[in-house]
Design a binder for these strands. Structure first.
Length: 259
DNA sequence: ATGGTGGGGATCCCA
């Protein structure tokens, strides 16, 4: 089962590029971030035509996540638990059944800039809620994939120019520590498990020729529970999509599981 | 130190 994550930066602007990538990469399941669309305005037809079931947790203008899945989506849950009144649409999960059942979670972690400030406080609080949800998922002892835009650069080797990110919410020590706290619960960073070393990026800013100069960062991650990590066959970043027509500023990342 | 680009929706916010 091929499970992917893709921050598309606006579903309306990215419909053609997303469909082209779906046709080429043929993932079984995709978690999407930054759809920037309300549920009712989400254009499900092009994906249903391609055989995907669609579950949306949308928000007008900002944020918004969704799951596309060829297997039926079971037990869909929307919103990250732990804060009543948080109306930002950043979390969706569902069970997909292939050879094995996999709990698939799609997340769009807050950017957090400028730091310090209320947006950074929100980021760290959201990561604490994520850690609690992740621990609860681990207790189920089933294959779990938490994929998405984590907006955290884990290590200096995950940025082409780490010094430029020194003061940024994506790379501050507290952000990296909060991500490590989740990993240390027992999750596997799938890309790292398969590819050591520098040069694996998922995001290149639209500005200042970042793609042309390969000035990227690795902030989109696929975290696997031990039961999912046991099934891991491959993890790759489809960086060529960043060179396409009207691209997102993120590239898709995907795992192949023996499931 | 600054400005560089893009999406969405409204004359500015977010990344």
């Amino acid at each position: 089962m091929k499970i992917a994550s893709f921050n598309i930066n606006g579903i309306k602007a990215r419909e053609a590029a997303l469909c082209d990538w779906l046709d080429a990469a043929a993932p079984d399941v995709v978690v999407l971030q930054e759809i920037k669309s309300a549920d009712a305005a989400f254009p499900a037809e092009p994906f249903e035509t391609r055989g995907y079931n669609v579950a949306v947790h949308g928000q007008k203008g900002f944020n918004g996540v969704a799951i596309l899945s060829k297997p039926p989506l079971e037990d869909v849950a929307r919103g990250l638990p732990g804060a009543d009144g948080d109306d930002q649409a950043r979390w969706i999960e569902a069970t997909v059944v292939g050879a094995r059942a996999v709990r698939v979670c799609g997340l769009y972690l807050p950017n957090g800039n400028p730091a310090p400030g209320p947006k950074y406080d929100y980021k760290l609080a959201w990561m604490d809620r994520l850690r609690r949800r992740a621990a609860a998922l681990l207790a189920g002892e089933e294959p779990v994939v938490m994929g998405g835009d984590y907006n955290v650069i884990p290590q200096p080797e995950d940025a082409a120019s780490p010094q430029k990110w020194r003061e940024d919410a994506l790379f501050l020590p507290e952000s990296r520590a909060a991500l490590r706290r989740i990993l240390h619960l027992g999750f596997t960073d799938a890309l790292r498990a398969r590819h050591a070393g520098a040069g694996h990026y998922t995001f290149w800013d639209y500005q200042a020729g970042a793609w042309r100069r390969n000035d990227g960062i690795r902030i989109d991650h696929m975290l696997l529970s031990p039961q999912a990590a046991d099934l891991l066959e491959d993890c790759r970043i489809d960086s060529e999509t960043r060179a396409g027509e009207k691209p997102s500023d993120h590239a898709p990342i995907h795992v192949t599981l023996d499931a």
